[in-house]
Design a protein around this nucleic acid. Structure first.
Lengths: 241, 241
DNA sequence: CGACCGGATCTTGTATACAAGTACTGGTTC
DNA sequence: GAACCAGTACTTGTATACAAGATCCGGTCG
């Protein structure tokens, strides 16, 4: 097979690198929902042994991004609307609770950082991946303002399904400008110290993102989990470069 | 070494059994904070190879219950007050948000189940572990009432530190009756449909549990993480059995 | 007596070998 | 032609072997 030592950039691939590479490929849909993941193939393609690949798949399966069926195979999990709703609920609960805990005096450095972030978000012709990174940083920034930054890690771990659905929504939908405007509105209320208004704006924002998903589902149903726990077959398209 | 095939109950120990056994031992303090965990020793004691043990330790380290230092060792993590606070914040956010989503008509079967649970909680001379299980079931039951049961899994994964601290608090403190009374009060408001009062009572309840921790910390500082990320030494007491 | 240096013995990380089980493939049979 | 049956090639789960590094113990030298 050609280029088995493909990503030769791997100096000394530890598990962390393998894990992050796989997670990124899943989240960016480079490995689309339903794709079959063979530990052997992945190991060969990445130039490592099965061990770090396997351990990474276990972690990804804990996040719900991958499903492992013993003696059958591992597959990128389809976007489960139920899990998307779960992640949405969790995220909304955490981010709204954080807005209730905002201090009287906001950290000026953080405020400046967030202002700069919002500026970047509204740059015309912005790359989608870059917008996603800024979006993440913005929401994390709000948690940092209230001193609950570390809760973000849990949200991140749980919102894999949500992220994939969101990405679909943005690819398809209008420019990210609309979401950037919502960010601006939220932050304006935060700076004014109006936590209640900020909470309302945040709720609208998060639910707008969530509302897109049903539209996407109607357009690309094959990316979503059908009904029950259907076991994918091995002959699914193994999209690997 | 005596009884290397100790827990001979293991018919065909898969990773799940190993993981759950280790997690239980950590949460019940049978493996106390700071204890050194050797993959080889654990494997020998459980009658399996390093592979399932290692994979379990990786999962536990993701939950923050275990710390793995490459080429040094794995240790039961000390109770980190910061992580306890994080878990507290997450839990409060989720449980309060769920109380906002209570339906008009409560599921009668669930209500009956919760009533029976509360009855059990107030049984005099109740075993501590049993109370803990009932407590868990009660809080999960409230989430089920609002249709957000699946969010509980995320909370559970994040609240390992909190659970250990709570367990310390209950061992030391008065009987669990006080907490049972708070449960009753919360549920009374829920049944009355007074979500606002239920939220207030829930907040008081969760923070009462949280407030105990500082007291415990003063009494048993060695169970808590001192200041920074201090690397434990290998010669720590390997409490095994 | 104290400081220093080296080997023995641990640790986890990775690679590989074997085991158990599933699914597809091709031939055979009716 | 269609159904069935066995073989083969794949999958993950587990066990083991090897590698790189860190700690600790003991001897040695100043």
């Amino acid at each position: 097979m050609m280029g088995a030592v493909a990503s030769s950039a791997g100096k000394k691939s530890n598990r962390r690198e393998v894990y992050e590479a796989l997670r990124r490929k899943v989240l960016t849909m480079e490995l689309p929902p339903g794709a079959a993941l063979s530990e052997n193939e992945l190991a060969a393609a990445m130039g490592v042994s099965r061990t770090p690949v396997r351990e990474s798949l276990i972690l990804l399966s804990e996040e719900g991004l991958v499903q492992v069926f013993p003696q059958i195979g591992s597959f990128v999990s389809r976007v489960d609307p139920e899990k998307v709703a779960d992640a949405q609920f969790l995220r909304e609960a955490v981010e709204l609770a954080a807005l209730e805990d905002l201090p009287e005096e906001l950290d000026p450095a953080l405020v400046a950082e967030l202002e700069a972030n919002l500026e970047q978000q509204r740059r015309p012709g912005i790359d989608l991946e870059e917008f996603f990174a800024l979006d993440e940083a913005f929401h994390l920034g709000l948690l940092r303002l209230s001193g609950h930054a570390s809760a973000w890690a849990t949200v991140v771990a749980a919102k894999g399904h949500l992220d994939r659905a969101r990405r679909l929504g943005l690819y398809d939908a209008q420019s990210p400008a609309e979401f950037a405007d919502q960010h601006v509105e939220i932050f304006r209320s935060v700076r004014r110290g109006d936590a209640d208004l900020a909470r309302r704006a945040m709720r609208v924002h998060l639910r707008a993102v969530f509302a897109d998903i049903e539209r996407i589902r109607a357009r690309s149903p094959e990316l979503f989990a059908s009904n029950s726990a259907s076991v994918p077959t091995r002959r699914n398209v193994v999209v690997w470069e």
